[in-house]
């Protein structure tokens, strides 16, 4: 009798353990995928960044970290430029995306999904083609500048291509949906009664937005910022197609080092520096935005 009971207990606990393990089994395919196609190349890249040599003689593992200092001192301009562009683009996308997401979530009614589809529609066109379109739009005698020049609103030698403006325009356009979507999700989740309650308690529409909607959508802003800032900082397509020598971003440098100069060690070192900088930046940002103190401060 007693043994039967303990057997039952054992069976029960085994089943429970299996139940707990199920969750891991579900994570396994994705985990393997990441391990094989992300972690292993990363380790390879890391080891590559610590090698010395060149394409012709071959690379040997020397564990020299000097490549890191060397590349940073050579390319710090492009590095800082990338971070600045990413900051500007992120700020621009928030400014443009927040009202858009707010409007779709609050006033979209039955057509919400249609509006979201329209925002996602550019994704159905190749990234490169989309960016190339901006070459036509911003071309010296394209329909924007051409018209402005015909109307004598700008000088005949005014140009946008190969300027930071062109690169930032392209980047903002390309990454806008990545900001709209997380913002939309977080605004859509808000209880509209909260805004009514704020209005009822003498807060104008703007005050309600600043004190209720904004603080409560910080998670969406956080997600949106990460989804734009990180890829923009390492983007190279926009700078390549819309920029010039003075708008080269760190992504272009890595691209050229790796694929044109075949300086694998330098390219890898620069990649890791960028990754490290972005991770540290996001960590600080998360700490600043995620703590209770800041949430409370936002509320006051």
């Amino acid at each position: 009798m007693t043994s039967a009971t303990s057997d039952e207990v054992k069976v029960g606990s085994t089943r429970r353990r299996m139940g707990r393990l199920t969750a891991y089994w579900l994570a396994l395919p994705g985990g393997l995928w990441l391990a094989i196609f992300f972690v292993i190349p990363m380790i390879y890249l890391l080891s590559l960044s610590l090698m010395t040599g060149n394409f012709i003689d071959g690379f040997t593992q020397t564990f020299h970290v000097s490549t890191y200092w060397h590349t940073i001192s050579l390319y710090h301009d492009q590095f800082i430029r990338s971070i600045i562009y990413a900051l500007i683009v992120t700020a621009l996308t928030i400014t443009l995306a927040y009202p858009m997401a707010y409007w779709i979530a609050m006033r979209g009614g039955k057509h919400k999904s249609t509006y979201l589809l329209i925002i996602l529609l550019p994704f159905f066109v190749s990234f490169v083609i989309r960016t190339l379109q901006w070459q036509f739009i911003l071309a010296d005698n394209g329909f924007v500048l051409g018209t402005l020049k015909d109307l004598h609103l700008v000088g005949s030698d005014f140009h946008l291509l190969a300027t930071p403006v062109a690169v930032i325009c392209g980047l903002t356009y390309n990454y806008l949906p990545f900001m709209v979507l997380p913002l939309y999700v977080s605004i859509e989740r808000l209880d509209p009664r909260l805004m009514e309650a704020a209005n009822d308690l003498y807060a104008s529409k703007l005050q309600a937005l600043l004190r209720i909607v904004f603080p409560l959508t910080i998670p969406g802003i956080f997600a949106g910022v990460i989804m734009t800032f990180v890829p923009v900082a390492s983007d190279f397509v926009n700078a390549q197609l819309l920029g010039g020598a003075k708008t080269t971003m760190i992504g272009n440098v890595i691209y050229t080092l790796y694929l044109t100069n075949n300086d694998y060690a330098a390219a890898s070192a620069l990649s890791f520096t960028l990754m490290g900088a972005l991770l540290i930046g996001i960590f600080i940002y998360a700490r600043a935005l995620g703590t209770k103190d800041v949430m409370e401060a936002a509320a006051l």
Partner: peptide, 16 residues
């Protein structure tokens, strides 16, 4: 509503 001298208790409370 923010200029009216009445206040509401909502069914779902709508606390911030």
């Amino acid at each position: 509503p923010y200029k009216r001298d009445v206040n509401t208790v909502f069914q779902s409370y709508a606390l911030f």
